[in-house]
Design a protein around this nucleic acid. Structure first.
Lengths: 197, 197
DNA sequence: GTGCGCCGACCGTCCGTTCGGTCGGCCGCC
DNA sequence: GGCGGCCGACCGAACGGACGGTCGGCGCAC
């Protein structure tokens, strides 16, 4: 084994560090991930991580900010705010699939948050706020007669988003076409809610 | 404050201990739950817990056994094994909703397993085995022409069970009628997959 | 020289677990 | 009936190791 030049030192900034951290958080869970785990994954020491971030929890906060930012951005789009409720519902279903696939690690982490710390409880509250936006659309679509009268709007919203959120458990970029996925979700739910349309 | 007789000692056996532990695991996550958390929840000391179980991990194992046992029991029922594939699919969808609601804490914990330990990896493999059973039914239903030709059976299986599994995130016994829930799920997915039937 | 990124050694606290012991109930024997 | 022994459930103290984080210093590029 010939002597080798020392490996170049890994170079990190906070964004690159966050990306690695989030992957490990997803794999091992936030609580199941130690700073030593992050050190191994990054190739820099535990203490070096603290040059970039103040704490383990700050990493979580940064990731959750990113996920929530992407989700809430959808609520400001014209497709979310204008038009018949059933169209808005289809729109948000499709957009959420897209956001989820585009920000997969961050949204995945968001969906797995418990309530053990203040930051986690904040994220849970933000998610509830988002759910209320969407629930309102479902209720309106039902009032418009666009959803089968035998289905409860509350149940519908939960089950529909439950399906979408479950994508985080198996979707891997590049293996499934995002448009196919989006189309399938909207097709199943759209048809299931109101029949052919 | 009058002097009080000492509180009677709490009395536990392994089953009662497990039930409490699983609730705490769900609330805080397995890795986010310390034995001290369990001691607080049970009212007995950390060390007393070790009279009933060998380790924290054994608690996890017992819970996962119970969840997997209930899930796999469905695969031996006549409705799972006999009849046209599309009927079997509806059957398993409905039965899984029932199992999930009946064994809510245990299945919830199962669905949240990471792969950090041998036991967790075992549970993940068992889940994959179950998924393969169900995938086969979906594929057969598609071959029978009972599922829209534009939907991929693999996607369908994942999205359908994603929806069902998401129930663990919000279902609470007594607030939603299990039969309503089951009917809604089967209706949305059944209709979404193949149109009215 | 300066600033950024990194390092190893170290810290106090918490972790899951062990160990020797206590307590209360039950049972058998005298 | 009373006593001793056994049992299961429980206790407090302590253990070794892991945890998230701190600190003083080094290396490198500009």
């Amino acid at each position: 084994m010939a002597a080798e030049a020392p490996a170049p030192r890994a170079q990190y900034d906070v964004h690159r560090l966050l990306a690695v951290a989030v992957q490990v958080f997803i794999e091992r869970g936030y609580d199941g991930t130690s700073m030593e785990d992050l050190a191994r994954a990054t190739g820099i020491t535990k203490s070096s991580i603290y040059h970039h971030v103040e704490s383990k929890e700050q990493l979580l906060r940064l990731a959750l900010d990113r996920a929530l930012g992407a989700l809430f951005a959808v609520t400001e789009e014209v497709g979310f705010t204008a038009g018949p409720a059933i169209d808005r519902l289809r729109y948000v279903l499709g957009r959420e699939v897209e956001v989820l696939c585009a920000e997969l690690p961050y949204v995945t982490l968001l969906l797995r948050v418990r309530g053990n710390t203040e930051i986690e409880r904040w994220a849970l509250e933000r998610r509830r706020e988002f759910d209320r936006f969407v629930r309102a659309i479902v209720v309106e679509a039902a009032a418009d007669g666009d959803i089968r009268a035998d289905l409860s709007p509350a149940l519908v919203e939960r089950l529909a988003f439950g399906m979408i959120n479950s994508i985080t458990e198996w979707y891997r970029p590049g293996r499934v076409d995002v448009d196919d996925l989006k189309t399938t979700v909207v097709a199943i739910i759209g048809t299931g809610l109101g029949g052919a349309r």
